[in-house]
Nucleic acid binder design. Structure first.
Length: 533
RNA sequence: GCGCUCAUAGCUCAAUGGAUAGAGCAACGGCCUGCGAAGCCGUAGAUUCGGGUUCAAUUCCCGAUGAGCGCACCA
């Protein structure tokens, strides 16, 4: 008995009186807070506009029709509000407990590949990666809940200039020297140098930089995986760029493009012709020194993603890469792939505020605050909740001092506290041997009951909103809302009262509904739901 | 200069084109000898500016102002 089910039920009732086309316009939505009925629709408003009939008359027709099926209706300022029979809520809560994934659309067969974080393997993960990590992981969870098949991937640039530079930097540290001017100067390489095996001496003598690079990459990736799993995030695959080269995929891409006469040679380099209006400049695929560009390799990578047969390919990038979108899309289209299957989600970069200073945080420049530090100084839950509260389009200012010092004021605890409180009440009930009931029996729902039941009932809509906006932040704000409603409900409504078991049973039942939704919501954003705090 | 994103309360952020714009923090005033005060109740406080579309605009369109990011034979 989710909103979707109720909606289709009402639709089938409406078909007795209205045409197929008219009924298809019908939808229900949650009413605003001051209306204390359960659902709302602007159906009469829309229909009167199309048919010329008075919306009052249409309302009366619907009203009679629905009344016969147990739905009470009211008409106010153009909107029709609907009151549910309590059985709908009863079935809803039971459904939450009888199905492990109550919001899954079993007909949904869409296979999604979502790639995110994908930081270079040249150092520890930084705060800049945190927002992408939270966004991608939570969104994946939500999509899975809605029935999509989701595959999470991390792309590792383990080839190229940067990697060579990493090797040189590590070798310098090994020999007790400073890394070169444009090298990697972070202290982590000093630590890594100490872990090098005895053979490293020979590597250095023979100037085998690649071996240093290999060692560094392996160590760094291991550490990144550890950091991420402590952050609650496990990828299905770490895709190495070297795999593409092993398969000679970039060369194949080049051949395809040549066949399609989409390239031209100029100044000793090979360029991709661009006919896309958004991207008027031509782009280099192979440099005049014969080296392949990142762009060509990335095209090969995305070609590989398509080859693997996904229906939807999603990349999550920081805003500093947004200018790259038209180029990628044009490239994909030129390769003859369906660019409509490819979506890039852009999230704005995070600025860090430390003291009174605001520091810009891009992957390139802001290498000073690691994800590990942040988790250690606050908690995984606090960080995930904090980042998932914001829409990806927010130009967020992250106040480190505030985040660490006041982590107790993070709304996270407000939500977790609601969950712990409910568990405490349920525990007390079982200690008092109050039996569980899974129905409202003869209990009449109060306005207050209905208000919070309405809140948990409409959770499904939040999930759909997340999918539409490709952002999980609606869940987080919803959870804060729901926790607030619960705390208020708790103050006003004594749950356990052995002199009134009818009310006690009904309220415990409602609490179980709230509990299920809080748990589901927290799970989806990767935050734990503690039984007690 | 061109492009993308953003502008909401003192601060950090919400708001499928809908009905009275919501939270948290900060401020002020109340509530623990009944289920957890990490809580509740109350007061004060906001849509950058100018046009347009619409029955209805914080939301869509145009312009102005301000901020972030991007415009490589880097990755």
């Amino acid at each position: 008995m989710t909103p979707t089910v109720v909606e289709s039920e009402i639709k089938s009732i409406l078909k007795n009186k209205f045409s197929e086309e008219e009924v298809s316009q019908f939808s229900i939505s949650p009413p605003p807070p001051h209306i204390n009925l359960d659902a709302s629709t602007n159906f009469a408003l829309i229909l009167s506009k199309k048919s010329g009939k008075k919306s009052d008359d249409i309302f009366k027709e619907i009203s009679i029709l629905l009344a016969a099926h147990g739905f009470e209706t009211e008409f106010t300022s153009g909107f029709m509000n609907i009151k549910f029979n309590k059985l709908i809520y009863e079935k809803y809560i039971n459904f939450l407990y009888s199905s492990p994934n109550p919001f899954t659309d079993k007909k949904n067969k869409t296979r999604i590949l979502i790639e995110f974080v994908s930081a270079n393997p040249t150092g520890p993960l930084h705060l800049a990666s945190a927002s992408g990590a939270c966004l991608g992981d939570s969104l994946s969870n939500i999509m899975k809940e809605l029935g999509f098949e989701v595959f999470k991937e991390y792309y590792v640039n383990n080839v190229g200039n940067q990697i060579e530079l990493l090797g040189i930097s590590l070798m310098s540290r090994f020999l007790g020297n400073e890394p070169p001017e444009d090298g990697y100067k972070g202290e982590y390489l000093i630590d890594l140098a100490k872990k090098l095996p005895p053979e490293a001496k020979e590597w250095a003598e023979k100037n085998e930089i690649l071996k240093f690079s290999q060692f560094a990459i392996n160590e760094i990736i291991t550490q990144q995986k550890k950091d991420l799993s402590d952050f609650g995030l496990v990828f299905d695959r770490w895709f190495m760029e070297s795999e593409l080269h092993k398969k000679k995929l970039p060369d194949k891409i080049l051949d395809i493009l040549k066949q399609k006469q989409a390239v031209e040679e100029k100044d000793g380099a090979i360029w991709l012709k661009m006919d896309d209006k958004n991207e008027d400049k031509e782009r280099v695929l192979v440099k005049s020194n014969g080296a392949k560009t990142y762009f060509l390799n990335d095209l090969a990578y995305h070609y590989d993603k398509y080859e693997r047969g996904f229906d939807w390919i999603i990349d999550i990038w920081g805003a500093d890469h947004h200018g790259y979108i038209p180029r990628m899309k044009a490239g994909i289209k030129t390769l003859g792939l369906d660019e409509k299957k490819f979506t890039v989600i852009i999230h704005q970069l995070v600025s860090i505020k430390k003291g009174n200073e605001i520091l810009k945080m891009s992957k390139r420049t802001g290498r000073f605050y690691t994800l590990r530090q942040l988790i250690d100084e606050t908690s995984k839950d606090a960080v995930r909740f904090f980042f998932t509260m914001r829409s990806p389009n927010t130009h967020l200012i992250f106040d480190i001092d505030l985040a660490t010092k006041q982590s107790n004021e993070n709304p996270l605890y407000y939500v977790q506290y609601a969950y712990a409180r409910i568990n405490s009440i349920i525990k007390n009930a079982s200690e008092k041997r109050i039996e569980e009931t899974w129905s409202f029996e003869k209990y009449e729902l109060s306005k207050d009951d209905r208000k919070i039941l309405k809140k948990i009932f409409w959770f499904e809509r939040i999930l759909k909103q997340c999918l539409k906006d490709l952002s999980p932040h609606h869940i987080t704000t919803y959870l804060i809302d729901l926790a607030g409603e619960f705390h208020g409900y708790y103050e006003r409504n004594r749950v356990l009262d052995e002199s009134d078991l009818l009310t006690t049973h009904a309220r415990l039942f409602i609490l179980k509904g709230i509990k299920a939704i809080l748990k589901k919501g927290l799970d989806l954003i990767g935050v734990s739901a503690p039984e007690k705090m």
